[in-house]
Write a protein that binds this DNA or RNA. Structure first.
Lengths: 195, 195, 195, 195
DNA sequence: AATGAATGAGTTTTCATTCAT
DNA sequence: TATGAATGAAAACTCATTCAT
């Protein structure tokens, strides 16, 4: 299996670094190969083509991202706690890895339509996690009962995503982690039962 | 002034059409020229380069977009009404022009970093409009007093933008306009004073 | 129409020269472009791709070849005269243009299957000319009446083609034109009525 | 001696199969290795390089081809019989092995100039056999006395070769063996004494 | 102002060959 | 002997931009 061999991860990590530093269009395959310390042709032993590198980068990194988020969420009892945890994890994980944040928020979105479709596939499980929290919250009674799940999910994801993107475009110059409580509160306010 | 000559708008409108139909990477200058009924070289009498066409497309179209939004907002009294109107206008204007929606939500985002920066410049006045509504709402007392303006603005814009993008990626197959009241309510819930 | 513009023929003639001198695989598009005195990209204004250059070279040159042959044949009365003229024209035309002979006898045959099919299409009218002479000869009574046309045509073409190829592979060092009478006689002997 | 080891013939036979099925340019070394059931690197223990495989294929197969032809010819008395036998053997041997026919008539000719030169070396003994039959025939009196040996040999080889090539290009769809008597007669007519 | 033919820089990908195991 | 992962050179083609008319 290819993903067990060390060069596989060498290449993926090099790709994240190179794309973050040079932008999507400035990241020639030869540049990634050099950064990974392999020959140009070696790339093609592990990846079908250049686009495949990008999809795989997203799959691998997003996979870990989602896994860690789920692990953390499972330790929480209420939907409110879970949602707050998801928001916190989302922001913390991207805050702690500037390169990855640049790639996911800016560079990967410059890809063509087909690649975007594939990226959305990878994202789907994450969106499902959000959906489930919303449903749970409505059942528990912590959230309002009249929520339309897809709309709320789009609000949650759209808000957090926009905030991370803004932060990246401002060159990560301010502290995003400190704003997590405010962001959580803002989102939760819109969907929690008013007592 | 260039924008008075007829070919200027011919080219811009052709660009929107061509990009919506062929995607960002399938929109060669020669294709836009052909669609506009002018020679390739003529493009360069009106625009500095290809990027300039794209920025201008966004400026012109977004300019109208913002203008119409402001006009409509000025007829409203309270910040709550104004914000609801902004959300409504945002969705209605993009809902009624699929080509433009495809270009703004999908294709233009595939551009390089520099173009994205310029696009953000164009968006700034719109974001300022949102900021002002928020401030007004806090002063009036309609909104909570402890809001952090940039955060709230990012929530509002992020939510609406995400919803339009989702709609476009689902090929505009469902009715987004019908969801405006729910979206407004969701957003306003998070920021209004609880009585 | 592309074939009226001067660069079209510049490129075709350069291609013949370059291929004859460097061989099929040594003839990069950039080399042909340089020899033609045009930019690499210009090639693609006139030809769909590299293979298209080769097919066109063959079409243009073979077209003239066949035309001249037919013109000359039309001045002869009997099938025997016509066939002798065809053999003479075939050898004379290739003998007088070493570059073209190298390309048709050696280099063009190194092409892939698809190109070979196309080349055969171009050759078809020539083979038909031969077929018609054979039929005429049988009707006139100059040739034996029991000839199988395709077989005889393959003998004629195979013999002449092999002789030109041998001559090219020996680097055109001996006089092929001087052997025309012997070649003609050899071929005619096999197919003429014995008195 | 390399040719005693089993993998040597495995590789050669695999090469014929792979080239016949995939064409000259579709026959990568790795594909031949796989078909032969050996590792890529193993190929280079038996052959200097890719070209060497091809030359060897031709040498081995043509060697057998010529050997069998000579064996058969030795059983004939007159030059006329010998020539008829050679023509018959040539066509029968290629007719009975489509893969080999495809390789010798089509694919191997797509090779570069150097390989073609080497292939001609391999063919030389065969051409000498033809030459000797012609000389014998002239001495015996069966053939005309004024024949120019190289010319006649080129006619014989050119004719038969062209016929086999035509048959292969028509995908071996008609019966070539049935035409052997006609072909022989056609050729012999041109060179035999007229009584 | 308008044209459109010409330019040429720039990049992904393939595949014969090597060599450490 | 045999392996097969790794190498890296090499080339067709696109398309934004120019400039002579």
């Amino acid at each position: 299996m290819k993903s067990n061999r060390p060069k596989y991860h060498q290449i993926i990590d090099a790709a994240v670094r190179v794309i973050a530093e040079n932008g999507y269009h400035g990241s020639q395959v030869s540049k990634i190969a050099k950064a990974a310390g392999v020959a140009d042709g070696t790339i093609y032993l592990y990846f079908k083509n250049k686009e495949d590198i990008l999809v795989t980068v997203f799959q691998e990194k997003m996979g870990q991202f989602i896994e860690r988020t789920i692990d953390e969420i499972n330790n929480r009892k209420t939907a409110i706690d879970k949602l707050a945890t998801l928001i916190e994890m989302h922001i913390k994980q991207l805050s702690s890895n500037h390169h990855l944040a640049i790639v996911t928020q800016l560079e990967l979105r410059q890809s063509n339509y087909d690649l975007r479709i594939q990226i959305n596939q990878v994202l789907k499980p994450y969106l499902t996690v959000i959906d489930n929290i919303i449903k749970e919250g409505m059942e528990e009674g912590g959230f309002r009962e009249d929520l339309k799940v897809p709309l709320v999910r789009q609000m949650i994801f759209g808000t957090v995503d926009e905030m991370v993107t803004n932060w990246v475009m401002k060159e990560c110059k301010y502290d995003l982690i400190g704003e997590i409580p405010l962001i959580s509160e803002l989102i939760l306010n819109g969907i929690c039962q008013k007592e």
